[in-house]
Design a protein around this nucleic acid. Structure first.
Lengths: 146, 146
DNA sequence: TGTTGACCTGTGAGCAGCTCACAGGTTTAC
DNA sequence: GTAAACCTGTGAGCTGCTCACAGGTCAACA
């Protein structure tokens, strides 16, 4: 199998396969006649593994580490258990930040509904954005006080 | 004000200010004696604006566009209203994906609790990850069938 | 046998939004 | 005068791809 067939088989882009190859996650052999890269069965397993791990939130670096352990014949399972806990924490953190951002955006849109457009003046670029900042901190303060 | 003082005033890193300068969001004058960049009041307003807009999910490119309109004396408000709707949609999309990823990770951890570590063999690198994939699709199929 | 055109290849560069490294200029205290 | 501390701008690096592109390969047809 060369790159195109492999990519099509797994539903990824050729460039993605090339990328994984370039960074050493896949190690195809070289066809002797034309020098094209050749992906045999083990490389196909590796790609399948990469995609599964990616879907579980493992980073490229994580996958490299898992491969290096399994290549040495060691079980990567303990590492995998540790890594996923870390990645889960990060994901939850980003999830919370994303939720907060979404809320800020939604309340900005709501607040701007009653507000007119204004031309920029001296040090004010867009009063919608600059006033919203104030509204936000006011709300925060009054929440703290009550 | 030069870069360090400006950065400290707004609680950002020097490198962030330098970055905004480099890409043209800030346009300091040059001190005549030593050639160091000098950030006067309007640049300080611009930085404050950048940070507010960033907190509302606007991209650097969005902010550039907003600046270019306000620099021409036009009100950027209509653009701002349109852009935030787009960014909100993207944020919601990413929020949903993040939630799904979190759920996958959590159920993987749960499933792995009863599963032993195993050494890699022939085409299996880490059975935890590879088996979880199967469990997932089984669940999906049985849901479809019932 | 030659040639056209489709397809294949590897590699360099680009994306966002910073962040870091680094060589060299400036200032300040002694 | 000089050493240390601080400042500067700029090039490169981060993640995980994605795109662009010059050039090699191959099948079909004249």
């Amino acid at each position: 199998m060369q790159v195109t067939e492999l990519a099509d088989t797994f539903g990824v882009k050729k460039d993605t396969v090339r990328y994984y190859t370039r960074i050493g996650l896949l190690r195809p052999s070289k066809s002797s006649n034309n020098g094209y890269k050749f992906y045999a069965t083990p490389e196909q397993s590796r790609l399948r593994f990469i995609l599964s791990a990616r879907d579980l939130g493992f980073s490229i670096e994580d996958i490299k580490q898992i491969f290096s352990e399994s290549d040495e014949g060691k079980t990567p399972c303990p590492t995998v258990r540790v890594l996923i806990e870390q990645r889960l924490q990060e994901t939850e953190q980003r999830f919370i930040e994303m939720a907060r951002l979404r809320d800020r955006m939604q309340s900005a849109i709501k607040a701007w509904d009653h507000m007119p457009d204004k031309a920029p003046c001296s040090n004010v670029i867009c009063h919608l954005i600059e006033d919203f900042e104030l509204v936000q901190s006011d709300t925060k303060n009054s929440n703290v006080q009550t």
